[in-house]
């Protein structure tokens, strides 16, 4: 049988800020690169994001955070995923994140953060090398 394992990525905007341009640009770029992107839109709670990630069985969750609340939102999403047994879903993202926050975020389990000015080529290349299809059902 011809099996086609295709990457599925959830792109979400947690928190209260309405800057969705970056999230949309990234969602579009990932789709243009051949991935299936579930876009859940603005104002998502970590719980909503984790629930959607499980129901959609995505390989990775990409968060866009422009509000300055990245130090609470990234870990909250990771925690919510773990609570639902989906700790194997890779979490990455982008937005306004000062350099000094990058290392603590990495320690908290965020795989990568792309700052304003990151090119979509750079993002796709990273996804290509770091995101792998999750294990099959079982």
């Amino acid at each position: 049988m011809t099996s086609q394992r295709k990457l599925r990525i959830l792109v979400a905007k947690p928190g209260l800020d309405g800057h969705d341009r970056g999230a949309k640009v990234v969602a579009r770029a990932l789709s243009d690169a051949g991935y299936e992107v579930v876009y859940t839109g603005l104002h998502q709670t970590p719980e909503m994001i984790a629930a959607a990630a499980v129901q959609e069985s995505v390989d990775a969750v990409g968060l866009s955070i422009m509000s300055g609340a990245h130090m609470t939102l990234f870990p909250a999403v990771i925690e919510a995923l773990r609570a639902r047994g989906a700790g194997d879903v890779l979490v990455f993202g982008g937005g306004i994140v000062p350099d000094e926050d990058l290392a603590p975020l990495k320690t908290a389990g965020v795989a990568q953060v792309f700052k304003p000015g990151a090119s979509t080529e750079e993002i796709i290349k990273w996804v290509e090398t770091h995101v792998r299809p999750r294990a099959e059902a079982g």
Binding site: K6, A27, R28, L30, S31, D32, A33, G34, Y35, E36, V37, V38, Y39, T40, G41, Q44, M48, A52, E56
Partner: peptide, 14 residues
């Protein structure tokens, strides 16, 4: 063209 997709129906049901 790309084989990719943006699945956006969920936005309305979140």
């Amino acid at each position: 063209f790309s084989g990719g997709a943006i699945l956006g129906d969920r936005i309305r049901m979140q």
